[in-house]
Amino acid sequence: MDSQVIATHPEEHAEHEHSPYLRHHFANLEQQRETSTFGMWLFLLTEIMFFGGLFCAYLIYRNWYYPAFVAGSHQLSIALGATNTAVLICSSFTMAMAVYSSEMRWRKALVGWLLATIVLGGVFLGIKAVEYREKWEKRHVPGLNFSAAGFTHQDPNYPEDKPLAPDMAEKTQVYFSLYFAMTGMHALHMIIGVSILIILVIRAWGGAYTQGHMTTVENFGLYWHFVDIVWIFLFPLLYLISRHQ
């Protein structure tokens, strides 16, 4: 009885009452959609700070051990890194098109674009695996099989580079620690993303996101683009900016 003392509010959105997607505690679908998108953005906010700690560490150590970071980054392949950047940008484009297809309610187009995104994500992870294997063979994995021997004498690919002093050569471990921590965390996000994409494709084939309820696809798109942005920064930091020093 007490709750009726407060002025009552006529249900304005009665027509939405029976939408199968509307959960009971929202007034209407629009509120539900905005709420979940805002929630997704807040989640991405936590992701910014999650990677933020790593970027902060990278900045500090690069200033401390500049020669070691330069020498370390010369061991990465720009060609593979650039290819991966292009692959990831393509996958962001296909994901954006998937969201558009969902908005347009084109079921087959949606499935197609999502599949393309999965393939591109897989290609990225494949290239990353090739790079990791190369690091393993060169004995550049800190803690597991690291050897600084390669950095104490002249690298034939970089004739201008002077060999590092033994103590600075040891510091390349910090570079590779951060390399593996950053790209590893990024790859983990990609693996999670591809796994979710597989579920999305199966459900999209059944027509789940092409009947007016597309929030899931849209929010997943935000996640995928965020992972892309992380790579957009990792690529120059790890591969490019030390080319000439």
Binding site: S92, H225, I232, F233, I241, H244
Partner: peptide, 27 residues
């Protein structure tokens, strides 16, 4: 291209532009 310290500045500036494009339009 060898631009001394500016290699890092240019690379990061371009990365920022790319990130902003993704955030504004794709997202």
């Amino acid at each position: 291209i060898d631009m001394y310290a500016f290699n890092a500045v240019v690379a990061l500036a371009i990365a920022c532009i790319k990130a902003v494009l993704v955030i504004l339009f794709f997202m």
